[in-house]
């Protein structure tokens, strides 16, 4: 009974973790370049709709649908980039506006195209030969879909990119000291455009995975605040990629637990459990402040537009 509960819970975790993880990873990429990204929820929504739309409208395969999700979010992110990088609009306001824009836009298009509540044949689990037949661990880890398998390599790739390549060095420089980067001959705006586009693609895939991989249906506003949670995860992780994956695991595990507790008839205040990740985020922020910011990889120029001194 307990084992069943555990197995059931653990097997469901990856499905909850992956959207958080990919969205947080994309945000982290954007924020490392010094651009605040409160529009994550909007990128996810657009990705989710584009994924379903690609399947229903174009007859795309689930993986191609995820590519469409990435593309759609990137397109929207270019608008954001024009606003905050080129026009230097306040990044908080631009990010919030973007969310509302995406909510309205996806609602309109989803309804207009008649994609609401139409089930699709989404991503299917791909059991790994042999490993998938292992007891317990096989079911939890090796009977997942392609995106789950690719999540850890994606983190490895971004972590390596940031820490061990010239591209990463330039991107971090733009986020930490745009003036210094400018003097070094690095195109601050171009780098930020690139980071926003690449990061938004990842956030878009996270959204597409929600609709194509998990729900296999489009419902208006279906991201349900997961973009905001991704922002909390990045803060929780103090802008470190692997910590962000750990944060996504924590948030995802708790999200997966809540409905199962209720279903099992256990009497625990579920709102309290839902609150735990946020309490943890607050605790991390307080702890970071008390330590004087030591260990945090928060970009110093986060949220600040770059303007070369004219004189």
């Amino acid at each position: 009974m307990v084992l069943d509960f555990l197995m059931n819970w653990l097997a469901a975790i990856p499905g909850f973790v992956v959207p958080f993880a990919l969205a947080a990873l994309g945000l982290l990429l954007i924020e490392k370049a010094g651009v605040l990204s409160l529009g994550a929820e909007g990128f996810m929504l657009v990705g989710a709709l584009a994924g379903i739309g690609a399947i229903l409208g174009l007859g795309a395969s689930p993986l191609a649908a995820l590519l469409c999700a990435a593309l759609a979010a990137t397109l929207l992110s270019l608008l954001y980039a024009v606003l905050v990088v080129s026009l230097r609009v306040n990044q908080v306001i631009a990010g919030l506006s973007l969310v509302f824009l995406a909510q309205g836009l996806t609602g309109l298009i989803g309804t207009g195209a008649g994609w609401v509540n139409r089930p699709v044949d989404g991503l299917r689990p791909v059991p790994v030969p042999l490993l998938g037949d292992l007891p317990l661990i096989g079911q939890v880890v090796f009977r997942q879909d392609t995106v789950v398998y690719l999540t850890v390599p994606a983190f490895a790739l971004v972590a390596w990119l940031l820490a061990r390549t010239m591209v990463g060095l330039r991107l971090r420089a733009v986020g930490d000291g745009p003036d210094a980067a400018d003097t070094a001959g690095i195109g601050v705006s171009a780098t930020r455009y690139g980071a926003i586009a690449a990061g938004a693609a990842l956030v878009g895939i996270a959204g597409g995975y929600l609709s194509v991989g998990i729900a296999r249906i489009w419902v208006e506003g279906m991201t349900g605040g997961r973009g905001w949670i991704a922002i909390a995860i990045v803060i929780f992780a103090r802008w470190r990629p692997w910590s962000a994956l750990a944060g996504a695991l924590l948030f995802g595990a708790i999200e997966a637990l809540i409905p199962r507790i209720a279903a099992a008839g256990i009497q625990v205040p579920q709102y309290f459990i839902a609150m735990i990740p946020y309490l943890a985020t607050l605790a991390v922020m307080v702890w970071t402040c008390l330590r004087g910011g030591g260990g945090s990889m928060e970009p110093r120029a986060l949220g600040r537009a770059h303007l070369r001194e004219d004189r």
């Binding site: 010239m166 971090r172 930490d176 000291g177 070094a184 690095i186």
Partner: peptide, 21 residues
């Protein structure tokens, strides 16, 4: 004009540029 979070070598590398990190 230094990136405060970078050490001296990373700052120099940033300014000098390189094809491989």
């Amino acid at each position: 004009r230094l990136v405060k979070a970078f050490n001296a070598l990373e700052n120099i590398l940033l300014a000098r540029g390189a094809s491989r990190y």
